[in-house]
Write a protein that binds this DNA or RNA. Structure first.
Length: 463
RNA sequence: UCCUCGAUAGCUCAAUGGUAGAGCACCCGGCUGUUAACCGGGCGGUUGUUGGUUCGAGUCCAACUCGGGGAGCCA
């Protein structure tokens, strides 16, 4: 008899009812009486457990009745309709084989644990309901992203993890070196001689694949990256990690409006895909992590995102009569409290804030005709804040060079980036989506450490 | 990095400056359809670390470590 997956049984129970079935999985809990008992078995293929009914007809009944949680079993029996109210069917066991034993000190108890405690046992927490749901949703969402772009013929670009370009100053970087830190080679000025380092120059872990993605954009037209990025910022918040994943599409012959349409369609696609393809996991999140989650996501799928120019946002905030800790004035960046007010109080749905003052945005963002603002957009969502940052890129060589001078950037470091404008440069645009922030929004999990299998944050690189 | 709150049994939490407790987990026993099963009994502690105040510190003070919430930076 070949084994079946619990997922197969749940998805098509009629094919298995009254049939002999063999399943393998791990014990979530055992409830036992004198002559019979119940096992909740989870085989990893499905969020829900299969209830196993066993009785003293088993020759190893006494042993099975005392199994500690997390014992691995293979169970053979007949799938029958369950008289119990909480499950539609159950497996009446004829034979139970212990595949892998466990011990009573198994840390995961069959009760609710705090997320903080579960973080300390990151190697075991995927066996809990919450993380079983979160990490399957993470997987499904990652696949949805690939599907979305591949269906639209975007080319998936693998931009480098190790980079020599200190691009856009997006944040502090982790240095990559093979030099002996206890005995650094020095040049004549007494500075570290990186010509003796592995790459012959100073290198770091990437903070963004955008500039490299632009090169492929101007060859393949529509491209996207999806991979890890690293920031050595000393950020101690529930929304920042030192290692996280970003999705960065880049589209040619496209402007900021096209960019926002793409971002909006992509998010709606991912939300819809996860609701349809991980319904049990989404329902669990809706019930135990964030009540109202599904309703909110469905509302977003069916609503139009707001487009709000920065200048109007400032006026709106100023006229709101709301007391803010940080004053609102044209030219200042929006503070968290301002973003929350806009997206949570005023609109109650995602808001694109567009056309920021050029001084507070990156050098590569396209200068608008007013010469004061750039074609940038941030997508703010209730609860999570900024989830996407994007812009139309400056394709005009002279203006780009002027902007680089304004920012004090060295042309030599960007010679290849400038070449893109020289050889058939066209208008193009793109954005970056913080994948973990998307997962937070999808699951209702409020700490980024709980949507990353093994999170790396300031002072923490366990496992 | 700043502000703020916290750290007591494996977990979640109690405990006026004066004998460290409960629920759950775990162990033993009971129970013929359980659902975080239930009922009875038992085991379980260098009170985060270091130092200080005091006759006496889980409790007060200081520093440090780790964690929660908020802010900055950002995705």
């Amino acid at each position: 008899m070949d084994g079946v997956l619990i997922r197969q049984i749940y998805r098509n129970p009629d094919a298995f009812l009254q049939q002999s079935v063999k399943v393998s999985g791990w014990v979530r809990t055992v409830r036992v009486s004198k002559a019979f008992g119940f096992i909740e078995l989870n085989d990893g293929s499905f969020f829900k457990n299969l209830q196993i009914v066993f009785d003293e007809m088993l020759d190893n009944f006494a042993e099975i009745a005392k199994l500690p949680v997390s014992t691995a079993l293979t169970v053979e029996g007949v799938l029958v309709e369950s008289p119990g109210a909480k499950q539609p069917f159950e497996l009446k066991a004829h034979r139970i084989v212990i595949e892998g034993s466990s011990t009573p000190d198994y840390p995961l108890q069959k009760k609710r644990h705090s997320l903080e405690f579960l973080r300390t046992i990151a190697h075991l927490r995927p066996r809990s309901n919450t993380f079983s749901a979160v990490f399957r949703i993470r997987s499904v969402a990652a696949y949805a992203i690939h599907r979305f772009f591949q269906e639209r013929n975007f080319v998936y670009v693998h931009t480098p993890i190790i980079t020599a370009s200190d691009c856009e100053g997006a944040g502090a970087m982790f240095q990559v070196t093979t030099l002996d830190l206890n005995d650094l080679p020095r040049n004549q000025e007494g500075k570290v001689d990186y010509s003796q380092d592995f790459f012959g120059k100073e290198t770091n872990l990437t903070v963004s694949g955008q500039l490299e993605a632009e090169t492929f954009c101007l060859a393949f037209r529509n491209v996207y990256t999806f991979g890890p990025t690293f920031r050595a910022e000393n950020s101690n918040t529930p929304r920042h990690a030192a290692e996280f994943w970003m999705v960065e599409p880049e589209i040619a012959f496209a402007d900021l409006q096209d960019d926002m349409v793409l971002a909006e369609e992509m998010l709606k696609y991912i939300f819809r895909y996860c609701l349809e393809n991980a319904p049990e996991e989404m329902e669990f999140c809706n019930q135990f992590i964030d009540q109202g989650l599904i309703e909110r996501l469905e509302h977003i799928i069916n609503s139009d995102f707001v487009r709000l120019p920065y200048t109007e946002a400032i006026e709106l905030l100023q006229k709101s009569g709301q007391a803010f800790s940080y004053p609102v004035a044209w030219g200042c960046d929006l503070q968290t409290e301002h973003e929350r007010f806009l997206t949570e109080q005023v609109f109650k749905k995602p808001v694109f804030v567009t056309d920021y003052p050029k001084e507070i945005k990156a050098f590569y963002m396209r200068l608008n005709d007013d010469r004061r603002t750039v074609a940038a957009m941030d997508l703010l969502v209730p609860g999570v804040g900024e989830i996407i940052g994007g812009s139309q890129r400056e394709e005009r060589l002279e203006i780009l060079e002027q902007r680089m001078r304004d920012f004090g950037l060295d042309f030599e470091d960007y010679w290849w980036y400038l070449d893109l404008r020289k050889y058939g440069g066209v208008k193009h645009a793109g954005f970056g989506l913080g994948f973990e922030r998307l997962i937070m929004y999808l699951t209702g999990i409020s700490n980024i450490r709980d949507v990353i299998p093994f999170p790396r944050t300031v002072n923490s690189a366990e496992f």
